[in-house]
């Protein structure tokens, strides 16, 4: 596979290093940058159409998405749906929101929900940078994140989404499924270095986008559309999941 990386921050740098560890990677092209590492697979992008997918960690990826659309290749963005809109190639898709809150957390939730029974209430909580709250929805993340208060962000049927502001370099996501079948509840979570988790999500998005099944998709999609594939990929990249067991 050939992946073009538009790297603007630490997330993109880390995602690039994760992708370089993949044996199936033929080429990692850097957009508008010269590679500094001595890896034969690391090159500067000269022609985007020579790549299978474009990955970007830009907060405003509109310009690079336009270039990917022009080149006719799919794209993956770290940010959620960009404010400036998304331009996708006619016969390719753009996966938006390849990050902790919009990709890793919902993919965990989708997997747990599938085995929990119809209509089981699901709470999805993720951390985000900010001052910790003093009240709200109580959430318990694995160490080193620990317990945090979270604020509700969205609600869709039985699924509630929360964000827990926290300071420091650690981040996490928790999925609580109150199953209607046995076992009565299941809580799974991830916690790690914030930039690493974001990079894992972005790198996993890139690998999902080069999957043959992705070629059938068109337009703007989210991880909700490819949740199981995404979870398989991100687990393969080394994401470790914890499970809560009550005493």
């Amino acid at each position: 596979m050939r992946i073009a990386l538009d790297q603007r921050s630490e997330v993109g740098t880390r995602a690039g290093r994760i992708l370089l560890a993949e044996r199936t990677l033929e080429l990692l092209g850097l957009v508008d940058q010269n590679p500094s590492d001595e890896d034969d697979r690391l090159v500067r992008v000269l022609d985007l159409s020579a790549y299978d997918v474009l990955v970007t960690d830009a907060e405003d990826p509109s310009d690079v998405l336009a270039a990917a659309a022009e080149a006719g290749i799919p794209a993956v963005t770290w940010v959620d749906r960009p404010a400036a809109g998304v331009q996708a190639a006619v016969d390719a898709a753009v996966l938006v929101g390849a990050n902790l809150g919009s990709a890793i957390a919902p993919s965990l939730a989708a997997h747990e929900a599938a085995g929990a029974g119809e209509g089981s209430p699901i709470d999805i909580v993720w951390t985000e940078p900010g001052r910790p709250l003093r009240r709200g929805h109580p959430s318990r993340f694995p160490d080193p994140v620990g317990p945090l208060w979270a604020a509700e962000r969205a609600r869709s049927g039985v699924v509630r989404r929360f964000a827990a502001p926290t300071q420091g370099e650690w981040a996490g996501a928790v999925v609580h499924v109150a199953a209607t079948e046995h076992p009565r509840e299941r809580i799974v979570a991830v916690a790690d270095h914030a930039a690493h988790l974001e990079a894992l999500a972005l790198a996993a998005g890139a690998l999902v986008a080069v999957d043959p099944a992705f070629e059938e998709l068109r337009g703007v999609i989210t991880v909700d559309d490819v949740a199981e594939t995404f979870l398989d990929v991100v687990l393969g990249l080394g994401l470790e999941v914890a499970e809560w067991r009550s005493d």
Binding site: H111, G115, P138, P147, L148, R245
Partner: peptide, 21 residues
């Protein structure tokens, strides 16, 4: 002072096996 959520008895363990739907 950071007011933490109430304590819940239990511990985190590695989820070694994924539940298959």
């Amino acid at each position: 002072r950071r007011v933490q959520p109430p304590e819940v008895s239990g511990t985190w363990h590695p989820a070694t096996q994924r539940r298959r739907p």
